[in-house]
């Protein structure tokens, strides 16, 4: 069994290798990596709900969307967030994501399981509808073009500089979420996931715990949206359609729920296939579909479940050996 410290060291080493190798690999890969990281923050926020609290949300694109639209509207209508005030936009983006989640949470947290799924889906579609129809603010179906990335000493229009910035946010988000799930609060979320009734009997206000987790996930969703808007330079209702939520959920399931890093691996695989493999072969969708199906069939705990399965297989054969040895003993005596 790998100890927690070794795991952390492995992840940190992987991230360091990533940040050293990617910028040397040509601009398109840099851009892809930037997109994948910006989106991975959203996927991790889904993991907080799905993997640690046991709530499968289909409305996470809503927080992503308000973050993205906030950035675009502030930049185009108020010329705000194009210099140092970009950092303010980041904070505002997280706040608006959290605020929206605080409102939606009041409706959604009352339910669980498939009902939670339906309610979050409906609320997410409300935000999509608003983006689609509120023409004077969102530009409707045509969306909003950002005039350029912010510049404050650092010129973010340079793809590599922007890559480092997004990487910074990505690594910080991951670290923050890791601290969060290792905290007593995070532990109690896992407790709720495993057996909510027992946690209630133990005296925990499970509703409040779930509500707070929901708001935190919303805040990270908002952050992800702010970065996404800057990555693309364009925000449209397509940014927050249902498939965005579904994608985030699938990434988590693919990588392995309840691991954080699984969400990142899922995002990397989906982006790699959808945006890199698709430039090479026309049948990339079959490959992506096959990955999904095989994962669900053979790896219900996602790709992060592979080591555990190997260990389990080994343990099984070991146990088998013991059983056989016992049988042998029994026949002898």
């Amino acid at each position: 069994m790998m100890s927690q410290t070794i795991k952390i060291v492995v992840v940190v080493l992987a991230l360091v290798a990533f940040v050293i190798i990617v910028p040397t690999s040509g601009s398109f890969v840099v851009l892809l990596a930037t997109r994948a990281m910006a989106f991975a923050i959203l996927a991790m926020s889904v993991d907080i709900l799905l993997g640690f609290t046991g709530l499968s949300s289909l409305g996470q694109a809503a927080y992503f969307g308000v973050g993205a639209y906030l950035t675009a509207v502030l930049a185009t209508k108020f010329h705000f967030g194009l210099g140092w005030d970009f950092w303010l936009v980041v904070v505002l983006g997280m706040l608006i994501g959290a605020a929206l989640a605080a409102v939606f949470g009041l409706f959604a947290i009352r339910a669980g399981g498939v009902y939670f799924l339906m309610i979050t889906l409906a609320l997410g579609q409300c935000v999509w509808g608003l983006a689609y129809r509120w023409n004077s603010v969102t530009g409707g179906d045509n969306g909003i073009n950002l005039s350029g990335r912010p510049s404050f000493g650092l010129d973010l229009s340079n793809e590599v500089t922007f890559f480092y910035l997004v990487f910074g946010f990505f690594a910080a988000s991951m670290a923050l979420m890791y601290v969060l799930i290792r905290s007593p609060f995070g532990r109690s979320l896992v407790g709720i996931r495993e057996r909510e009734l027992r946690m209630q009997i133990l005296g925990y206000n499970t509703w409040l715990h779930k509500y707070i987790a929901f708001i935190i996930a919303g805040a990270f969703g908002g952050l992800s949206g702010v970065l996404w808007a800057q990555t693309n330079g364009h925000v449209s209702p397509e940014t927050l359609v249902l498939t965005t939520s579904v994608d985030a959920l699938l990434m988590v399931v693919l990588g392995g729920a309840g691991t954080l890093i699984g969400a990142v691996i899922g995002a990397a695989i989906v982006f790699g296939m959808r945006e890199y493999l698709s430039t090479l072969v026309p049948w990339w969708q079959y490959a992506l579909g096959a990955v999904y199906v095989l994962t669900i069939l053979y790896l219900p705990s996602g790709l992060m479940g592979v080591p555990a399965r190997i260990r389990q297989a080994r343990a099984n054969t070991a146990a088998q050996n013991v059983v056989e040895a016992n049988k042998e003993l029994a026949t002898k005596t």
Partner: peptide, 21 residues
């Protein structure tokens, strides 16, 4: 030919791929 999947987000990525790569 690049597949833009009918999504403006993907258009941007694929356009950059075509330009840079």
């Amino acid at each position: 030919v690049e597949d833009d999947q009918g999504k403006p987000d993907v258009d941007v990525t694929k356009a950059k791929k075509l330009i840079l790569q």
